[in-house]
Nucleic acid binder design. Structure first.
Length: 459
RNA sequence: GGCGCGGUGGCAGAGUGGUUAUGCAGCGGACUGCAACUCCGUUAACGCCGGUUCGAUUCCGACCCGCGCCUCCA
């Protein structure tokens, strides 16, 4: 079975056909760094990380860029509010973003380009657009002229006439057309800015992605991803300006958009203020739990965030790691092809992660009740399939004992209590043994007796 | 107003024109000194109304409800 991707451009699920099989190119829109990211921001990072992993098994080289936008009016405002240097803010939140994404077990992208490192590339594109008549200068701004691009609206399927009706935005007087968007804007002396042929200024919102895509991945790339809310205007504009600088050739062949994470049925968003920060959640739940929870929903649909889904995710992972722990001594000598099994097929079918997750449970259960070569094969399948999703990659004991949210007792304290309890049990003093167990349980540590030993886990 | 998405058992969430996943939670039992874990069994669903069909949760049409984009946002 081959990889199928739902392409927003055609609104259809299509077979993935790369430009050059020897080098796959993928670009995903990352955050604007002026504060910490919430769980909704984490969704595309996790989803496209899974796609990145899958592509890596199918093709020899995958170049994946996930950008960081570090110049934006929101950042400037934050800088003024906190009375801190812009670079201080962008540096801090870039680091925190990378930290959070690492904690979710995302692989590092091939490139993590930053907008401010690409000002001259942006100006090259802008200059080209002006010189070829796709953009104009007005009142110190450089604007993209929507009317000059007959294909404008093809991605988001919006007609210019339709856009008028619900417009809530005040149209700047210097625009020839209300949909024209800013490529370059003038900076006041105390604003950050770069010299250019159009005067000292800074880039508009969409141009940074076009410049970074072109520089790191090329003119037309295979896959461009991001959240639903970026479809219009961000991706439409990105696509328009890029197409117009390369004779109509598209920016990307496949456009993918993930649905939102909702809170109480409403879109989680920074502007609404109804969000849960990844960093805060990580204090209570391991990153793998957040990851699993994100993957329980198919990426294109919205997902309601709730602590119940995190608790369920944690229990599900407990169950999988238990099976894995029971099979700890099973050697995987067989190498398993990453093909033709239900779980992999599910992933290849436009990233059906919920179905793939259910396969994980099926395989684990089957592994538990089989033996010999069958068991080895099933274990290999389990490791491989979960690896494609970035799950189950740690040692079971580490999973059970290194709970980030619960450090009431040290490992030594727990081990000592277990020894103490064992002695009580040997002496037939079950009352004391039960008191010890209860005491540990109150501190979130669960004991599991087997015939010979006692293992423990943090709840 | 334009464009778009969704409504499946207590919760999450796949899927299919007929045998109705999976996980979590619940219930009953086995196991256990008691538990935990594990195992066995089990309850329970397809928004509403029509149509097509031998048969629809699945196809078609209308309706109701929820959500999103059109302004910064993953």
């Amino acid at each position: 079975m081959s990889l199928k991707i739902y392409n927003t451009l055609t609104r259809k699920k299509e077979n993935f056909s790369p430009i050059t099989p020897s080098r796959i190119t993928m670009y995903v829109c990352g955050p604007t760094v002026y504060n910490r990211v919430h769980i909704g921001n984490a969704r595309p990072a996790v989803i496209f990380d899974v796609l990145y992993r899958i592509l890596q098994t199918l093709y020899p080289r995958v170049d994946y860029a996930r950008n960081i936008t570090d110049i934006d009016d929101k950042i400037i405002m934050t800088s003024r509010r906190l009375n801190q240097d812009i670079s201080e803010i962008t540096e801090r939140y870039s680091q925190l973003y990378i930290q959070d994404m690492d904690a979710l077990h995302n692989l590092a992208p091939t490139f993590s380009p930053r907008a401010t490192d690409h000002i001259s590339e942006m100006l090259d594109i802008i200059t080209d657009l002006v010189d070829s008549g796709y953009a104009y200068v007005a009142d110190g701004h450089v604007l993209f002229s929507v009317a000059s691009d007959s294909d404008y609206g093809q991605l988001s399927r919006r007609q210019s006439s339709e856009l008028m009706a619900g417009a809530r935005v005040n149209v700047a007087s210097y625009k020839r057309n209300p949909q024209d968007f800013v490529l370059w804007k003038p900076s006041a002396p105390d604003d950050p800015g770069w010299p250019s042929r159009f005067g000292r200024g800074r880039p508009g919102w969409h141009i940074e992605c076009s410049a970074m895509v072109k520089k790191h991945l090329g003119e037309t790339i295979d896959i461009h991803g991001g959240g639903q809310d970026l479809l219009f205007p961000h991706h439409e504009n990105e696509n328009a300006q890029s197409r117009c600088t390369h004779n109509g050739r598209p920016l990307a062949n496949y456009w993918m958009h993930n649905g939102f994470v909702n809170l109480d049925g409403e879109k989680m968003s920074k502007s609404l203020g109804n969000f849960r920060l990844v960093g805060d959640l990580l204090k209570v739940y391991p990153g793998e739990v957040l990851r699993y929870a994100i993957l329980t929903a198919q990426y294109r649909f919205e997902q309601n965030f709730d602590y119940a889904i995190l608790d369920a995710a944690k229990n599900s992972l407990n169950s999988l790691y238990r099976y894995l722990r029971a099979a700890e001594n099973i050697e995987i000598s067989v190498s398993i092809e990453v093909s033709s099994c239900r779980g992999v097929d599910a992933l290849l079918d436009d990233l059906n992660t919920p179905l793939a997750l259910s396969e994980l449970h099926r395989i684990a259960k089957e592994m538990h009740s089989s033996c010999g070569t069958d068991q080895q094969i099933l274990k290999a399948q389990l490791i491989n399939l979960s690896g494609l999703m970035g799950l189950l990659q740690q040692q079971p004991e580490d999973w059970f004992q290194n709970d980030s949210g619960n450090l009431a007792l040290t490992d030594d304290q727990i081990e000592n209590a277990i020894v103490e309890r064992k002695q009580a049990k040997l002496a037939g003093d079950y009352t004391t043994a039960d008191i010890i167990r209860k005491r540990l349980e109150d501190d979130g540590v669960v004991l599991e007796d087997s015939r010979s030993t006692t293992t423990w886990r943090r709840r």
